[in-house]
Design a protein around this nucleic acid. Structure first.
Length: 436
DNA sequence: GCCGTTTTCGGCCCGACTGTTTTCAGTCG
């Protein structure tokens, strides 16, 4: 069983526990364990029998270790099976509808025994939701729309697709007078391979508190918007035509560092960082790092650090770290010990050994790719075009391959202007795991 | 259910937005 499957099982158990009204902190433990499984560079199923090693993983205690062992042996987690038997497998899909959380699902279950999207759609059409607590007209319409969107399906987006969408929105926003800077944050900034949504941080004089109304309206008028999800004093969320969700947050330049830190995440990194802040007598929010004794953070809260990420991490006794490391996998402790690992950069890459030319399904010639590779400082490349077995991609047989090389491929003094399939930076091995 | 710079018990992040709740609960990131 791979780590992603393990993470899904743990997440689902946490979700079901929440629907059943379980202890919030126990629920959080399942989520934290799921996160640990997803991010771990060690194959947890391979060490399932090695209890001491499992317990070394932050977020995995005795119970979670037992759950992992059960999952590897049986393909599921006992508590998950028990709860699924009480409801039905389809109940987990309900959580994917916008605005639908465990409390609402519990309500729908208690009032109408609804445990799947199809049952919910049917209940809406039959008018059986009207009259339930918190089920006004707008709420029901929102659910109807959510079901429609779910059936069309959205899912996660490749990072290059998200980047393209981001670039267009950034250009649009920068043309507004008083917006100085638009910074993509979230998983895009953390260099993940896919993004569930797009987070954009907007700063400038037009984003000062109490003055942001015009900029908010301008943002909400972006031509690519399909539906507005939420619009407030300094935040706009919407769906683009391709179903990518975009969250735009407008904050004053004086809060840029705090906002960037907050919006970059990951969620679990932020939770850990705030816990550390609390222990040190501070409170951290998207507005600033402030002193706890001065009251809650926020636009009017006290400011220990806010303008740069560096200042915030420094005030918390830590080195600044590249966004790629912020996954709550020990980087906070490593930064506090000043022992962050080196993150591999584009300049560290020496070559690329998986490249297709226009002879099959690539877009460039061997020569063009060689030139591009040289421009990046590569020392070698390997051309790996398809064989004829893959006819749909114009696979080459031996004769055609030879012809192609003779025509294009004489040893060339120079090398991949093809878009690398690798992220610009590769994730470094987290510090804590290097001790394993 | 996990974890420890005070802790093996007692605490566990924080603010924005929405809808219908007349003061707030639920959801989200």
């Amino acid at each position: 069983m791979d780590n992603l499957t393990l993470a899904r099982l743990l997440t689902e158990t946490g979700d079901l526990l929440e629907i059943s009204g379980g202890d919030p902190f126990r629920i959080r433990s399942y989520r934290r364990a799921a996160d640990a499984a997803e991010q771990s560079t060690v194959d947890l199923s391979a060490i399932a029998d090695d209890l001491p090693r499992l317990l070394e993983v932050p977020g995995i205690g005795k119970s979670m270790a037992a759950n992992i062992q059960a999952a590897v042996e049986t393909g599921s987690i006992p508590l998950r099976d028990e709860l699924l038997a009480r409801y039905s497998a389809g109940i987990l899909d309900l959580l994917k509808l916008p605005g639908m959380g465990p409390k609402t699902i519990a309500l729908l279950w208690d009032a109408a025994k609804i445990s799947s999207i199809d049952q919910l759609a049917e209940a809406i059409d039959a008018g059986r939701l009207a009259g339930l607590p918190r089920m006004g007209e707008k709420q029901i319409e929102k659910l109807r729309k959510g079901i429609e969107d779910f059936r069309k399906s959205a899912g996660r987006f490749r990072i290059d697709e998200a980047e393209e969408s981001a670039e267009r929105i950034i250009q649009y926003l920068l043309s507004f007078d008083g917006i100085d800077r638009v910074t993509p944050a979230g998983s895009l900034r953390r260099g993940r391979e896919t993004a569930g949504d797009l987070d954009l941080l907007v700063t400038g004089p037009a984003c000062e508190p109490d003055k942001a109304a015009a900029a908010v309206e301008y943002t909400a008028a972006y031509p690519g918007i399909r539906d507005i999800i939420a619009k407030g004093e300094n935040k706009v969320s919407f769906y683009l035509g391709n179903s990518l969700q975009v969250d735009v947050r407008l904050l004053p330049s004086s809060s840029y560092g705090a906002a960037l830190q907050y919006f970059t995440g990951s969620k679990m990194h932020n939770v850990s960082l705030r816990q550390r802040a609390l222990k040190m007598g501070y409170t951290l929010s998207e507005w600033s790092l402030g002193r706890l004794e001065d009251g809650p953070a926020g636009p009017a809260g006290s400011v220990v650090a806010a303008e740069t990420e560096e200042a915030i991490y420094a005030a918390l006794g830590m080195d600044w770290m590249p966004p790629e490391l912020r996954e709550n996998l020990g980087e906070i402790e490593a930064a506090a010990r000043h022992q962050l690992p080196h993150v591999i950069e584009q300049s560290d890459l020496r070559g690329d050994v998986h490249m297709h030319t226009h002879a099959t399904d690539g877009r460039n010639s061997i020569r063009e790719m060689a030139d591009a590779a040289l421009a990046r400082g590569y020392q070698y490349i390997a051309i790996t075009d398809h064989s004829k077995n893959l006819a749909m991609t114009n696979g080459l047989d031996a004769e055609r391959a030879l012809e192609h090389v003779q025509r294009n491929g004489r040893p060339h003094p120079r090398l991949p202007r093809h878009r690398s399939r690798h992220p610009r930076r590769r994730r470094a091995r987290p510090a804590q795991r290097s001790a394993h």
